[in-house]
Amino acid sequence: MEAVTVDEKENVVRDDYLNDGMHDNTGNKDQFVVFQLGSEEYGVNISQAKEIIKPKNITNVPNTPEHVLGVINLRGQIVPVVDMKKRFSIELDADTETDSSRIITVEVNDALIGIKVDGVNEVVWLDQDKLEPAPEVAGGVRQEYLIGIGKIEDRLLVLVDLNKILFEDTDEIKN
């Protein structure tokens, strides 16, 4: 396993790591952006992640679900931001924003969406054989919203299915 830390100053994750020769063409490895929510670690496929930005002024949008924090201005484009902790109904420190809080912009269903997380830890390569099928619940998220579990030594990454999490009906994701 190779781990790459995210350079805090260079926000763009993808280009850096796709162009440095470390990209794997054999297809049995995938790169994941690892982010933190509360005490759990989660991962999204890097092909969906666009960039990582520090939280900026969010304009609240009325008449939207509670987990939609609002919209931000990202270089002239209006980008909605979803609070992943609220989406996963993780209660602890729900509203605290720390220095390590980040917004990962992801492209899902042709829509650019920001997901707010407690922190972005690193970008990792995961072998296909290190992926395990999703259990019924992991990290407070039910099976159908998960792609699987990634194992990195003694750590467990909850790999989430953003498509379902963001676009499927707001039914309880939590068990």
Binding site: T59, N73, A111
Partner: peptide, 21 residues
């Protein structure tokens, strides 16, 4: 955008002088 379609009473957004929405 596509993610926030048909928000009641909101037809869109604009960016004001200080860069906020």
């Amino acid at each position: 955008g596509k993610y926030l379609l048909n928000v009641e009473h909101i037809s869109g957004a604009t960016i004001v002088g200080d860069g906020d929405v």
